[in-house]
Design a protein around this nucleic acid. Sequence first.
DNA 1: ATATTATTATAACGTACGTTAGGTATAGGA
DNA 2: TCCTATACCTAACGTACGTTATAATAATAT
Lengths: 200, 200
Amino acid sequence: MMKEENLRMRIKEAAVEHFNRNGYHGTTIRSIAGDVGCSLPMIYYYYKNKKELFDEIVKRDYFQFLSKQELNLESGDVIGGYTKLIHSLNSLSSYDKHLYRLGVKVYLSFDGDAEHIQDMDTYEETVYVSHAARIKPHLVGSADCNLIAHTLMHLLDTLIMEIVVKGKTLPEEQIRGEISLILERYQKRSSMTEQASMAT
Amino acid sequence: MMKEENLRMRIKEAAVEHFNRNGYHGTTIRSIAGDVGCSLPMIYYYYKNKKELFDEIVKRDYFQFLSKQELNLESGDVIGGYTKLIHSLNSLSSYDKHLYRLGVKVYLSFDGDAEHIQDMDTYEETVYVSHAARIKPHLVGSADCNLIAHTLMHLLDTLIMEIVVKGKTLPEEQIRGEISLILERYQKRSSMTEQASMAT
DNA sequence: ATATTATTATAACGTACGTTAGGTATAGGA
DNA sequence: TCCTATACCTAACGTACGTTATAATAATAT
């Protein structure tokens, strides 16, 4: 047994690419099988149907990926941490990039159904809260924490979009520059590490 | 003759909604006809085929809409101008909002084909150049104009996304706040109008 | 060696799609 | 009044889709 269990993974890899390029409805089981080089019913051997294949990617793998990503955000140096996190997206594996991209697509309601959107919105709220909590201790009292947290999240979202969705490669200095533009002047002098590490 | 020429427009309105919700491949001519309340071949009476219907929306109407939008950006007060432009998206007609949303979807390569993407990328470059030229005279010499222009465009993109794609309603103060966060301290004292109009 | 289970394939089913053929009714111009 | 073009319809064609029935191989267990 288990002659070709990795066929299951190869099917999923091809599926992620097709869902990305052609959407759920534009993706055919036949074209996935064709790309993988297996027969059509093999998809049904490993997955109950088209929707279950899509769901495993978008409802399970995508959120697992996001959790893994979150762990890469070290606390301490705020600007440096976010810069590194975003910059690391440049060198994501091709599969992870497509997985991320498909997740964003569904998050924006550009694919999937109402059920998926619900999951995404629930998750998004927790992300905002955690970001706000992370930057709060680094702001001076006069700063509007909510505004800055929102603006930061908005900026991070577009940077992610540029790299993951549009496929561009952003240099670390630019990422740091844009993030600093928002956070720099509000940082407390006494951050745990690297009080003055930003480039002017 | 011309008993119901507005049927053509009603078909397009329904089409924009369906392309938004279900994508090009997920949209069926039958469902459009069903929504409009006409028979299926009426779509073919006004449009050569599905692709031509999609193209008229995405390749013609969307860019016409963008041109119209661009005219709403008054020069002079930079922060106020961008704030007003973005805030006006909240009260776009339902059709224009869907049209905008579909355009963004194609711009991000989430729908349409390579041909559409090409048009979008060409247009995007001209937009960046015009934004950079617009804010340049308002920056003090020490500021990195390119960085600020990029960051501003990124921020505007997410604000547009929140309103047009995610369907949220953003209050004017928040929009002005986020834009100010980037532009405020770099503005020259001697802008043509309203030297000190921002809220702290 | 044989029974059993895991992995693969061929061929087909029913359904829904994009599109068209062919026809009907209406309305203004001659 | 008849003609012609416009605005619409019902019905169908061919194709491609998601899915399954069925069967052949290959590996393992007994």
